[in-house]
Design a binder for these strands. Sequence first.
DNA 1: ACCTGAACACCGTTCAAGT
DNA 2: ACCTGAACACCGTTCAAGT
Lengths: 209, 209
Amino acid sequence: MPLRRPDVLDGAMRLLEEEGLAGLTMRRLASALDVRPSALYWHFADKRALLDAMAEELVSGVPEADPALPWDARASRLATGLRTALRSHRDGARLYAGTFVARPHTLRIGAALLTAFTDAGLPRARAMGTAFTLLYFVLGHTIEEQAHEELHATGEWDPDEAAAATAPYPGLAQALKEYENSTPDQRFTDGLHNFLDGVRYQLTEHRGG
Amino acid sequence: MPLRRPDVLDGAMRLLEEEGLAGLTMRRLASALDVRPSALYWHFADKRALLDAMAEELVSGVPEADPALPWDARASRLATGLRTALRSHRDGARLYAGTFVARPHTLRIGAALLTAFTDAGLPRARAMGTAFTLLYFVLGHTIEEQAHEELHATGEWDPDEAAAATAPYPGLAQALKEYENSTPDQRFTDGLHNFLDGVRYQLTEHRGG
DNA sequence: ACCTGAACACCGTTCAAGT
DNA sequence: ACCTGAACACCGTTCAAGT
């Protein structure tokens, strides 16, 4: 039976898991699907289109935020849901960041975030900027998490080297150590709460001025 | 006269400007320097090492923050200085984000940011998280800026396509339009100020609790 | 509709050998 | 100390031709 577009997409997601983003090549994907490389170009115009579709697939499961919830709970759930989705595949955050374009699910999440912040009471342009800033936080944090995991998993992490590099800045070394005492989940939640507190602060400022 | 390490680095920075990150290959660099590709490997262990050195070069000019300044002015100057440095070369932000490792200037900037936030009164681990969050903002914002510029410069920007994509979300389309009415500088400054307001809010919270 | 065969124009990297 | 020559093991992509 012939290969279909979704089969190619599925194969690509599996290959990503096994080989990581750097190991995901059209030629390897073809051979995993038992087909010649040129066959893939029947289903996707080029590699970029495949990566875009993969990024879309990745965030397709981010749940809608219940509109009955208050704005901060909605923003919080969207951010957490996005992080979970990005973490659901190896190199997911980097894959997504590399294809950050206007596609249905991405727009859906962006629109929902925006609505949360306009509902909070921010003017539209500012709500847009706030939504972007939250996305930068989620992406940056999750990229960092996954890079960290990858380094440890592949045994590339050298504690001595890290210690040597931070030696000129003992305060930084100490702060990093304390920072890494908490779990990634905890650090993400803390950062998210600080962010939302910042938005609340903007709101009181606005009411006052 | 023979090629030296700094010559290779300089050539690479110039090639980045002309060709962008995707066009920066070892082979093209070699031919720009009038040398065979293998010659480059005498000066740099591999391409990754060259990119790391380029990223370091990029942020080497970020000025020290005057320690006499209040913490928020220091954080603000560091963030602005970093953005300026990243914007000083084509694809600078993407180059830097792709090599975000422990190198002297990067550590120097990180340590300075950390000190700003501990001086503000945040506990060490929280100050560290705050510093990371600010870095995510600067990187994310600058990557987005440069991607936007690149799309316009190469004529790949299609307003009709953009309009069609956001059509299902009129609120989003409208907010994006208003958001893009201001300059990138203004948007960056706004985001930065909101961020610093958030830190100030954390501080009052902390004093109270 | 979907795939193969064969090619094109590239990559990064290694390493013996040259000067 | 610095470079060449020559090769190895890859890439993404195109396109005529097959079924």
